[in-house]
Amino acid sequence: MLKAVLKKILNLIPTLLGVSVLAFLLIRLVPGDPIMLLLGERGADPQMYAEMKRTMGLDRSLLHQYFTFLSNVLRGDFGYSIVSKRPVLTEFLDRFPATLELGIMAMTFAITLGIPFGIIAAVKRNTIFDYSLMGAGLVGYSMPIFWWGLMLIIVFSVKLGWTPVSGRIDVLYEIERHTGLLLIDSWMSPDGGFAAFKSALSHLILPALAMGTIPLAVVARMTRSSMLEVLGEDYIRTARAKGLPYVRVVIVHALRNAMVPIITILGLLFGSIITGAILTEMIFSWPGIGKWIVFSINARDYPVIQGGVVMIASLVILTNTIVDVLYLWANPRMRQ
């Protein structure tokens, strides 16, 4: 077990290095001169131009530039944003909780509905329940979420007026930052309390719904097929023959054994949260990582794009490795 885990961790190193090379090279492929972008009109002065080039290290060889970049990154220094002049890492950490909160909410939605839907579809196989749930699942799976988000806004915010259109919380509230997760911080805030919490929650519902739709469909489909496999096993028949109530057999005997593939899928979905976050955050003006990256790309804020790509990719790789390790731990047969 320990050996397998160590091997996984060692495997991380070349992949992470590769990501840093990719991020480093991608930025250098972008058309346009970053020095001119930084200096603006002052870049016309050749002396200032040369000086800036030297301070940014752009006069060195590409290899030298890369190793400087790498050693800075390893010390947590991702450079400064051209737009805000603040450290990229600080900018990232400022916005990450918003994405995390949205992601957790979306996954909660996907899991709490997806698993029961999958179980019902499996137990009621080839009935109208199965067909309609799996039909809806396929629609959800095919959903262009950038459109789905807009439709949710049109129906629930514009027509019904139930939820706000965008943002994280009503501008009324000034919430002191403790965890960065507004659902928690709003409770702790002195002038907030329940009203602030309600405001934060109502802002969160639609984006989470939009972002959770595809994971919901994936979880439901996976749960169904995994349950169908398990329900055909002998021990289920034995449990039934013993006269145990059906619900107990399904929940205790079948679901527990069907969970391994479901957990794997969940892990992979956690890794794909950022993908959903980019589009969802753009639609709902959610101040998280996804919106930040898209804005930085439009503003050609190279340090942010470079640092953001490294941080996001590392996060995805780490999550996947943790899932792999958990999988090994839960599944002794896989350890060889």
């Binding site: 070349p14 992949t15 590769g18 990501v19 990719l22 991608l26 492929l29 972008v30 058309p31 890794g271 794909s272 950022i274 993908t275 980019i278 589009l279 990256i293 898209v294 790309i297 439009n298 050609r300 794009i305 790509v309 996001i312 990719a313 590392s314 995805v316 790789i317 996947n320």
Partner: peptide
């Protein structure tokens, strides 16, 4: 496969927008 791992570590939408931004 190492190259594949690296590309797969980047969320697909993120990679697509970065590449699209580079190419214009």
């Amino acid at each position: 496969m190492r190259l594949t791992d690296i590309i797969m570590a980047l969320p697909s939408t993120l990679l697509a927008i970065v590449v699209a931004a580079i190419l214009g």
